[in-house]
Nucleic acid binder design. Structure first.
Lengths: 299, 299
DNA sequence: AAAATAGTGTCTTTCAGACAGTATTAA
DNA sequence: TTAATACTGTCTGAAAGACACTATTTT
């Protein structure tokens, strides 16, 4: 909009406008980062990109980029970044993106979180069904889905309470269960404060599927109750009781709707064929699906 | 675009450029706004400032200001703004601010939300005990606490629990249920998108006191169960059953701790003296205090 | 005395979790 | 056949909400 000189006006207006001129201040950059989660082979994966330039050259980071000032809103920018990095800006972007849930996660603005300048990052959280790997030859050449269990989620830039996100009581300590890769390799350390952002995103995801039907956003249009249970088990990293989960899901009005069909085959290791369902029209689960081993209050 | 002539080149080239010099883009301003809530005479009040210059000259707005780039984080900026506008930057600022709960609410960045330029606003939500009125002669000369029932809040289409800005652009419908003042005066319309921000803050507050002990942040250090109930009734705008509420609060571990004392006098209209409590050490209420007339899913 | 309120007891309903049990399918 | 799995039935305990009741204080 303004870009150059402010338009003319009264003296008072000009004085006030001057207070809005960003060049009167040290500049701030605004970026949008995306924590895109998906489910693969029963495990949670997050979309990461490899940094091609310093700082943190060669490190993995959350996909993101600068907000195009005057052109787009924050959610638009997040959707654009996500489409670019997943390689979905092709023909099917429209259809694929429409099934992806996107919500604002939080904003991170510690002055030293980027060594180059003060960067304020608006983080978004995305739930996506299993997508193809990002294709080379696009912006997404360096993007890949990583299992979250292979990432080091302990914050390393210990700025006081940088850009705190709600309620989070980030375990912070030597939790031990995160950051260990199944193959025993060293956990990957993320660039900037992206480990913290990812940890906040995982916390949000774990809490969100309790009272919202968004777990279905990780699945295809049609799914079975056991598949839905696999989502909860992956996000919560807990085994759930199959029978109780089944009855509970069906008892929540509007959570799932029967399609009248069943799967073609039974389970890989035996068992009957499961009935198919699709997402219902509820926005809120009532009653909620409470996480089981909620180790009570932390203090 | 920029308002001048757009740069030539593909988006990828622009992004490449920006990775070296973010100022290649149209500038963005970053502000921090605060939704500060308090309880007065049994009603919810919000801190507002009167705008002294266009746009929206003479309108009321949320207190806020520019992030001091390179100097402070977002939460720091919010605390600074809150201290300035409440007139608490005096001697007692330290003690008073320490009792105020402050958390990030969401970030608002629609390109046209400020007519002058693209402004990204990081909103914070504050719960404060009853504070003295802002004093003239300070930055807070134009600040005042307003009952939220006297403000015009458009209903918003977002998810009730969603922390932050819903992805969809709201369809700003006109509904008459909120914004009616008890004295029948016309509801006050807030500047910019601050009505939306305030509505999101109220939603967050209503949800937050269900599962966190933050309702106590509205009270003095010592309080009675009926006083705590008054907080819930004001925030939820619902009458609660006194007996059940009492038993429920005491049954949640770590919510409140008895001080062994009682009030000096009984209720204003009769009744025994109440026992005093202070906040316990729980961070999460388990089990939660569920809101009663939760009209189920919205779709 | 009358009215209002703090705090407790009890009953009913709902729901989460444990567990058992049946039917169906793959190996 | 064996093992795994989808799904259903049943019991127990926790907890929310409705209601009744006592005790204490103000007007």
């Amino acid at each position: 909009m303004t870009g150059e000189q402010p338009h003319s006006g009264t003296a008072a207006e000009l004085a006030w406008l001057a207070s809005y001129d960003p060049r009167a201040y040290t500049p701030v950059a605004v970026t949008v980062d995306v924590v895109a989660l998906t489910l693969r082979h029963g495990h949670l994966y997050v979309l990461l990109v490899e940094r091609a330039a310093p700082p943190y050259q060669g490190s993995w980071a959350l996909p993101g980029g600068f907000l195009r000032a005057g052109e787009e809103g924050l959610a638009e920018a997040a959707a654009r970044e996500l489409a670019e990095e997943t390689g979905l800006h092709a023909a099917d972007a429209e259809a694929a993106l429409s099934r992806i849930h996107l919500e604002q996660l939080g904003t991170y603005g510690a002055p030293d979180r980027d060594p180059r300048m003060h960067v304020v990052s608006v983080a978004y959280l995305a739930f996506a069904p299993d997508l193809p790997d990002p294709q080379a030859g696009s912006d997404a050449a360096s993007a890949a889905w990583h299992p979250v269990t292979g990432l080091d989620l302990r914050p390393h830039t210990g700025h006081p309470q940088a850009a705190g996100v709600p309620v989070d009581t980030h375990g912070g300590g030597v939790d031990g269960h995160t950051g260990l890769r199944p193959d025993g390799a060293a956990p990957i350390t993320l660039a900037f404060d992206h480990a913290r952002i990812l940890a906040d995103g995982l916390d949000r995801a774990r809490a969100k599927i309790e009272y919202s039907p968004l777990a279905t956003a990780f699945l295809q249009h049609d799914f079975t109750i056991p598949e839905l249970r696999a989502v909860y088990e992956a996000v919560w990293a807990e085994k759930l009781h199959p029978g109780n989960f089944h009855r509970k899901v069906l008892s929540v009005p509007g959570f799932v709707e029967s399609t009248g069909t069943t799967t073609e085959r039974g389970g890989a290791r035996g068992g009957p064929r499961a009935r198919n369902y699709c997402a219902g029209d509820a926005q809120l689960l009532h009653p909620a699906l409470l996480r089981p081993t909620r180790e009570d209050e932390i203090h």
